[in-house]
Amino acid sequence: MSYGTNVTYRYDGSFNGLMTAVYKAISSKKMPENIISEEDSQTILFHEEVVVSDEEISSKMQKYIREKISFDALDNIRRCYFSNAKEKEMLILKYILLGKKYGRKVDTMLSVDTVITMFKVVKRFSNEANFYREFLRFTENEGVLSSVIEPENFVLPYIVYHYEQRIGNLDFLIYDKTHKVALIHKDKHSDIVFIDDFSLPEADDKERFYRELWKGYYNIIGIKERYNEKLRMNLMPKKYWKHMTEFEDMFGNNKENKKCLMG
């Protein structure tokens, strides 16, 4: 692969598009200056080349990664793609190039910058996905459970399976406010769809009842003699509190309480 070419690939932002761009770089044996998605920059660069997403090439590329590198490598690449890491496209390309050279061994090469960076991006991503197994809260309204989350990474595809297993017999909706995408699970079938805006339905009496019970429980279960604010914050970063039932009074999600406060 020769360096020093200053072409920048622009792809449509889809995974297939990215795989097509990677394929293009590898088959032309020229390292691009950068790979950017449509949303990255509006100005058209001088040495820009638009990559048209090609499903067939993409699946060929994925098959190559799975067979020549490893299944885990493909999983890493997907997670990296769904993450909010900076310049993730070039990271993915460099990682694939290393994999092409070293095969499945690439994931043991933790002293190589590209590999360790990939490793960290994937870890951050997986941690966040995990947080949304823990700290997500549902509101029940007319038989449907709904929830709003604000993740940094696009974790929805990675929590679908968990919630299908957990409450697959119920209808539920998880709205990702950051990416404006909703996971809708209805009649035992899940879909991920774009929705511009969504807010939780007003809590009815039954919902209020259980929220009050939960808050009551949450507040007595801590042992006063052991209070440790720092520990709590380390384990449950404050950015997650906003959508958690136990802190709703703190953030004024509880409209009734707000009214009370305002007199």
Partner: peptide
């Protein structure tokens, strides 16, 4: 344990903490 066809719930071997109390202990 995976979910069942007509029931509710599963179990993950790593365990899941759903909240942390003011003393920093997992709930």
């Amino acid at each position: 344990r995976g979910g069942s066809i007509d029931g509710i719930g599963n179990a993950a071997s790593c365990g899941i903490c759903h909240s942390f109390a003011a003393d920093g202990r997992c709930i």
